[in-house]
């Protein structure tokens, strides 16, 4: 794996992103849990508006990596620069990055004591200091966008898994982030609910959002990704367009992974 692998010129829609500014830059990022090394010198650059899907077997460090990008985990070596701000111990930088980066979790993590609408408006009101009426209006628009405007007054416990995950997406979008991170967003869902969440994510990708998605949905990767990053044992093994990745992978480990899942 070398640096040139990380730069991509043409994308699924024929967009040329080579001139787009870099929005996430990781340089030699390493992380250990005790003696166990979870990430090993991860270097990658993600362009604005790019959709990157991170694939890999369980325990390969995919989730750890994207959780490092908004500092839910902290890396011990290397640099992570998000939208020109370096992630360090500086509280101000961390808060700045978190308000620019939205995150969607595998287990939704909605706030069960708040109604759907309050889940969406909480951060805009308290972090962005938005007027309440404006925040509610925005929440209604976002719930419309993810297709569940009629559930605004319900509580998370009253919704299906797919609906909850869509609320979680709306909650993240309410902070008007420039980047969205998805940590296995469909893994906890029943098969018939996966589609409704993926449809929302596809719309989001089409609207030009920068997205980093950890998933096992190969269909989504093929259809939406500009680039696929394949990881194993805390390292980036192979980077390429979906076309390259699914039809003509170069690395043996990638071939083995694909033969196991396809």
């Amino acid at each position: 794996m070398n640096e040139t692998d990380n730069t991509i010129t043409t994308t699924r829609s024929g967009r040329d992103l080579s001139d787009a500014p870099d929005i996430i830059v990781c340089k030699g990022v390493s992380k250990w849990y005790g003696d166990f090394q979870a990430l090993e010198k991860i270097s990658a650059t993600i362009k604005e508006q790019e959709v990157v899907v991170v694939l890999g077997p369980s325990g390969s460090g995919k989730s750890t990596w994207i959780r490092c990008i908004n500092r839910l985990e902290h890396h011990q070596e290397g640099d992570i620069i998000v939208d020109g701000v370096e992630l360090t111990n500086d509280m101000r930088n961390i808060e700045k990055i978190r308000s620019e980066v939205g995150m969607v979790f595998q287990q939704f993590n909605l706030f069960p004591h708040l109604s759907v609408r309050d889940n969406v408006t909480l951060a805009p009101i308290w972090v962005r200091k938005k007027p309440k009426a404006e925040a509610i209006e925005q929440a209604n628009e976002l719930l419309e966008l993810v297709g569940i405007p009629e559930q605004a007054d319900k509580f998370p416990g009253q919704l299906s898994g797919g609906q909850q995950q869509r609320v979680a997406i709306a909650r993240a979008l309410a902070m008007e982030p420039r980047i969205m991170l998805f940590d296995e967003p469909t893994s906890a869902l029943d098969p018939e609910m996966i589609k409704e969440v993926l449809d929302v994510m596809k719309d989001l990708a089409r609207s030009g959002m920068t997205m980093m998605v950890v998933t096992h949905e190969m269909g989504f990767a093929k259809e939406v990704a500009d680039r696929i990053i394949f990881m194993e044992e805390g390292q980036i093994v192979e980077v390429g367009t979906p076309e390259h990745f699914f039809t003509n992978p170069t690395e043996d480990r990638t071939k083995l992974f694909l033969s196991q899942i396809l």
Binding site: N109, H113, L122, M175
Partner: peptide, 29 residues
């Protein structure tokens, strides 16, 4: 659950806000 704290941080709430708005209401219950 730890996920609640993570979700609160991920949407940008600071520690005091996530304690007041997310953790304590649930802990009190």
């Amino acid at each position: 659950p730890k996920g609640q704290v993570e979700a609160a941080s991920a949407v940008g709430l600071n520690r005091a806000q996530s304690l007041r708005r997310v953790i304590l209401p649930q802990a009190f219950r």
